[in-house]
């Protein structure tokens, strides 16, 4: 048992708590023990993305982040917990991620046709379907600010849908939305891939989309 200091950002200011107990617990269990702090959670096992928050300056899933693994705890007996900063706070650590979902709608992330079967791409499509919409990627992204740039989840989602879609009109829309709302803003800093709790290869998604949506369009424009 070691006594640690827990700093939690509530209403923009850090409040200090102390915790004295087993360090082999997750951050959600810590919050439960402290009591009275609002945060989102559902599965408590890293499958749903609800509990994403900033822990010792890193966006992470609180239910699979263990105190005993945090270097700050070993070095300074300290843990800081903040709500994701790129979304409006509802209360304490609970944030409103509706912008991510609105963008999926705005970028028409669905298919109009029956899905094309791509035997060689099943693994890729499977991986891209794992996105939790947790928001860790956009938290880490240097360019995402909740305005025009729609962020990594769109690239991940679109990279799967464009190989399943056969409706040529909608395919054009999927590509155009990516080209307008993702491509010009992304500087390929890879920060999103580093923090993704599902280890989704976001750069593969981005490269694929760039190749299919941007590169080809440039060629078309050249020909015109």
């Amino acid at each position: 048992m070691t006594e640690i200091t827990v700093k939690i950002k509530i209403d923009g200011e850090f409040k200090r708590f102390s915790y004295d107990g087993d360090l082999n617990i997750s951050v959600t269990t810590l919050l439960e023990k402290l009591g009275g702090i609002e945060y989102s959670c559902s599965c408590l096992q890293g499958l749903c993305g609800s509990c994403a928050m900033v822990i010792n300056s890193q966006p992470k899933l609180a239910c699979q982040t263990f105190l005993s693994d945090e270097i700050m705890i070993h070095e300074y007996k300290l843990i800081t917990i903040e709500p994701l900063s790129k979304f409006p706070v509802i209360n304490d650590l609970k944030v409103d991620k509706s912008k991510l979902y609105d963008d999926l709608l705005e970028c028409e992330q669905w298919i109009e046709s029956d899905s094309k079967m791509n035997y060689d791409e099943i693994d890729f499509e499977y991986e891209m379907s794992l996105c939790l919409m947790c928001g860790c990627c956009v938290e880490a992204c240097p360019n995402y600010d909740g305005n025009d740039f729609v962020g990594t989840p769109i690239a991940v989602s679109a990279s799967k849908l464009i190989s399943q879609e056969t409706d040529s009109n909608h395919l054009k829309i999927l590509k155009k939305k990516y080209k307008d709302k993702f491509y010009p803003h992304c500087v390929k800093s890879i920060a999103c891939e580093d923090v993704c709790p599902m280890e989704i290869q976001t750069q593969r998604a981005i490269s694929k989309m760039n190749k299919k949506a941007v590169w080809k369009l440039w060629q078309l424009i050249d020909r015109d």
């Binding site: 028409e108 992330q109 669905w110 109009e112 794992l130 849908l161």
Partner: peptide, 23 residues
């Protein structure tokens, strides 16, 4: 089954389909 995440794969697909109805 879909890999080790059948439920997740089903939800992702149905959510995307539902989004079309939302739009």
């Amino acid at each position: 089954y879909a890999g080790a995440r059948t439920g997740k794969q089903l939800v992702t697909t149905l959510t995307s389909h539902c989004r079309k109805k939302e739009a």
